[in-house]
Design a binder for these strands. Structure first.
Length: 606
RNA sequence: GCUCACAUAGCUCAGUCGGUAGAGCACUUCCUUGGUAAGGAAGAGGUCAUCGGUUCGAAUCCGAUUGUGAGCACCA
C-alpha cells in the first residue's frame, strides 16, 4: 500500500468513525431513534435514522457540540465478532429491526458464519469497519453537518423513508474550509440562478411546472447548439425529418410504451372523430414521450434494402414526459423538452461500426465545447430486478446478445466504463455519458441506445442480400441530450460566461462619451451585417457603469471607443475575465472575431 | 411521488412583542458626456403565494392547498 492509499484509508476511517459518532449523538439527543446505514461518502459521510422526534438544521449546532464532546472523550473503538445466532439476538435486543433485516440478508447471501460489531463508548453498531483507534484521533474542527434529507431504506421507494443527515468531513480544517467554499462557489454557478440573472429562461406557473419558456438570450444558445448539431449530423450523412408532437395511443400500445413507459407519459386526449361513413368514432391521442415511433413509421413507409442501411434519421424533436413532481428542477429535469434525437437503422453486423461512428461524433462535440469531465456507463437490464417485466421488454436472449455487442465494442475502443445493471431503456441496453456537474452531481447527458425490441413490434424490415426480409436494429442517439438539460449543463460548465460563438450577446460597444456614438453605431451595424450579435451600450451611463454592466452580463467582448479609437479607426477590446486590453484596427478585430466565431473557438483568435 | 425546509416589489433581502410594509439594484423622467466594476435627483412599483382558522386586529400564530429548494426514488 502506498502513501496515497494509506491517507485515503485514514480518511475513510475518520469519516466512517464520525458516522458512528453522529449516530451516538443523535441517539443521545433523540432516545428511541432507530438506525439505518451510515457510510462514508466522497466528501464526508451520512447516517440514516428513523427519529423519535424530528431533527432540523436548527439542531445542528447542538448536535455538532455533542459530537465534539464525544471526540474529546477519546472513546476507543472495539471490534467484536459474534456468531450469527448471537448477532441476531443482539440486534433484536438493540431494537434495530432494519439492521436485523440487513444482517439476515448478508448472512443469507454470503453464508457468513459471524457478523462484526463495533463499540465506542455507549454506542454499538453492526459494522464491518475499519475505524480509527479512538475518537481522539479525529480532528474536532474538520467536519460540518451539512443537510437533513429524506432517503428510502435500502434505496427503495416501497420502503420506509428515513431521515438522512449529511456531513462534510476531511483530514483537517483547511480541507474542510476549502471544500465548503468550493461548494458555495459552485452554488453561484447554479443554472437556475444564472438563468434568471442572464435572462435565459423562465418557468411560469400559469404555463406549468417543468415547462420552461426560453427567453431571447436563452434561445440564442439553443439555436447555436442546434446549428452545431445539424452541421455535425449533415457531415455524418444524417437526413433530417420533422414529425408531430402527438400520435394515436394505439401506436404507443404497439411500441410497448404503454406497457413499460406509461407512468412517464401525459394522460391521453380523447376526441370524437367522424369516420368516412358518418359514424362517430372515439380516438385517443397522446403527447409523445419519445420521437422513435414517428421515425419508425418513416422507416416503414417504403420497402428498405440492406443497401439503404445504415439509414440515419435526425430531428430535434419535442417530447413530453410526466416527470415526478419532485424530480422537476430548472432546465435540468423538465416535462417538455427538445431532444437532439436521431435513429440509425442498421443490420446486426453494422451495429458496432454505427456505435463507433456515433462515439467519435460525441468526442468531436465534446472537444468543441471543451468538455472532459465525464464517465461512460453501460446501462443494462437487471435480470434480478423483481420489477423487471414492468420495466423491460422480456427477452433475456436479446438482452444478453445486445449487451455483449456493446461491451465488446467498448473493449475494442479501449473505453473504461461503469457497469450499471438496471439502468437500461425498456427496449434495450445503452451507453450513457455521465457528466460531473460543477454543482457536484452526476447527470446523464448524452446517450447511445441499442433497440432490439421496437423495430420487430412495428414490423420494420429490410430486404437482405439473400432476398429475404430481416428486422433491423435501431440505434437511438442524443449527443447534445435535450436542449434543456444540455443548456443547464453548459450554463454551469461555463459559469454563464459563454464562449463568443455561443454567447447571447457576442460584442457590446461602449462609448467613452455620446459624441462617439456615430462610430459606435457604425461598428454595431457592420458587425450585425455579418450576423454578429452586437449591441450598443446605453449612452447615458458612465464608462465605469457600462463596463460593470457588460461584465456582470458576462458579455465575452466589450469594445470601448473614444476619441483615440475614432481618430485611428480602431477599437479597444476588453475580453471577459481578462484585465489587459488590446487596441487594434477595427478591420483586424472584425477578421479575428469572424475567425473566432467560425471556428467556435473557446478563446479569442487574434 | 416521499422527507424536511422555505414563499414579502422584476431581482436580492429587511420587517422586533400580532397594531394594514421598507432598503438596495433594476425600471421611468430629468440633470450629468464621464477612458475602464455602480455620477446625481425625482417618480412609479406590493391582495406580504392562495384559501381558511384564531384574534378587536394577522406579512407575523395555526391548518390546508399551490409553488420553490435540498435529498431520496425515478430519469435526457
Amino acid at each position: 500500500m502506498n502513501a496515497a492509499d494509506s491517507s485515503e484509508d485514514a480518511l475513510y476511517r475518520t469519516r466512517h468513525s464520525l458516522a458512528h459518532v453522529l449516530a451516538q449523538a443523535v441517539l443521545d439527543m433523540r432516545p428511541g431513534t432507530t438506525l439505518g446505514f451510515g457510510p462514508p461518502i466522497a466528501d464526508g459521510f451520512y447516517y440514516d435514522f428513523i427519529l423519535s422526534e424530528p431533527i432540523t438544521e436548527d439542531d445542528f449546532p447542538a448536535l455538532e457540540q455533542r459530537m465534539r464532546r464525544i471526540l474529546k472523550k477519546g472513546q476507543r473503538f472495539y471490534r467484536e465478532d459474534l456468531p450469527v445466532a448471537d448477532a441476531f439476538a443482539r440486534l433484536d435486543e438493540m431494537h434495530e429491526p432494519y439492521k436485523r433485516e440487513y444482517a439476515a440478508e448478508l448472512v443469507d447471501k454470503n453464508s457468513l458464519p459471524s457478523l462484526s460489531f463495533y463499540r465506542n463508548g455507549p454506542f454499538l453498531d453492526m459494522c464491518e469497519g475499519p475505524h480509527v483507534d479512538t475518537t481522539r484521533d479525529i480532528p474536532r474542527d474538520a467536519f460540518k453537518l451539512r443537510s437533513v434529507a429524506g432517503a428510502y431504506w435500502r434505496g427503495d421507494a416501497d420502503n420506509v423513508m428515513m431521515t438522512r443527515i449529511y456531513a462534510w468531513a476531511f483530514a483537517d480544517k483547511a480541507s474542510l474550509d476549502a471544500a465548503v467554499s468550493a461548494y458555495e462557489l459552485a452554488q453561484e454557478r447554479d443554472h437556475k440562478k444564472l438563468g434568471r440573472e442572464l435572462d435565459l429562461f423562465l418557468i411560469d406557473d400559469d404555463v406549468g411546472r417543468g415547462l420552461p419558456l426560453w427567453l431571447p438570450h436563452g434561445t440564442v444558445i439553443r439555436d447555436e447548439l442546434e446549428k452545431l448539431a445539424v452541421e455535425l449530423e449533415f457531415k455524418a450523412g444524417y437526413e433530417r425529418v420533422a414529425t408531430p408532437h402527438i400520435a394515436k395511443a394505439d401506436l404507443y400500445d404497439r411500441t410497448g410504451h404503454l406497457a413499460h413507459y406509461k407512468d412517464s407519459m401525459y394522460p391521453p386526449m380523447e376526441v370524437i372523430e367522424e369516420s368516412a361513413d358518418g359514424e362517430s368514432v372515439r380516438e385517443t391521442y397522446m403527447l409523445r414521450p419519445m420521437n422513435c415511433p414517428h421515425h419508425h413509421k418513416i422507416y416503414a413507409s417504403r420497402l428498405r434494402s440492406y443497401r439503404d442501411l445504415p439509414l440515419r434519421l435526425a430531428e430535434y424533436g419535442d417530447v413530453y414526459r410526466w416527470e415526478a413532481s419532485g424530480a422537476v428542477s430548472g432546465l435540468a429535469r423538465v416535462r417538455g423538452m427538445s431532444m437532439n434525437d436521431a435513429h440509425i437503422y442498421c443490420t446486426e453486423d453494422q451495429v458496432k461500426d454505427v456505435f463507433k461512428e456515433v462515439i467519435s461524433q460525441y468526442d468531436e462535440a465534446y472537444r468543441i465545447l471543451g468538455l472532459n469531465d465525464y464517465g461512460i456507463r453501460l446501462s443494462r437490464w437487471d435480470p434480478d430486478d423483481p420489477k423487471g417485466r414492468e420495466k423491460y421488454v422480456d427477452a433475456p436472449e436479446a438482452w444478453r446478445r445486445t449487451e455483449q455487442i456493446i461491451a465488446e465494442l467498448l473493449a475494442e475502443m479501449n473505453i473504461d466504463y461503469e457497469d450499471a445493471p438496471g439502468e437500461a431503456a425498456f427496449y434495450g441496453p445503452k451507453i450513457d455519458v455521465q457528466f460531473h456537474t460543477v454543482t457536484g452531481r452526476d447527470e446523464t447527458v448524452s446517450t447511445v441506445q441499442l433497440d432490439f425490441a421496437v423495430p420487430p413490434r412495428l414490423g420494420l424490415t429490410y430486404v437482405g442480400p439473400d432476398g429475404a426480409e430481416h428486422t433491423p436494429y435501431c440505434v437511438h442517439r442524443a449527443p447534445f441530450s435535450t436542449h434543456e438539460r444540455f443548456t443547464a449543463f453548459l450554463i454551469e460548465h461555463f459559469g454563464g460566461a459563454f464562449p463568443t460563438w455561443l454567447a447571447p450577446v457576442q460584442v457590446q460597444v461602449l462609448t467613452v462619451s455620446a459624441q462617439f456614438g456615430a462610430y459606435a453605431r457604425e461598428i454595431v451595424d457592420r458587425l450585425r451585417g455579418r450576423f454578429v450579435r452586437a449591441e450598443l451600450a446605453s449612452e447615458s451611463d458612465t464608462v465605469s457603469k457600462k463596463v460593470r454592466d457588460g461584465t456582470t452580463r458576462k458579455i465575452p467582448n466589450l469594445l470601448i471607443v473614444g476619441e483615440r479609437e475614432v481618430a485611428d479607426r480602431t477599437v479597444t477590446l476588453r475580453r471577459y475575465g481578462v484585465k489587459q486590453q488590446t487596441t487594434m484596427p477595427l478591420d483586424t478585430f472584425e477578421a479575428a472575431l469572424g475567425k473566432t466565431i467560425a471556428m467556435r473557438s473557446l478563446t479569442f483568435e487574434l
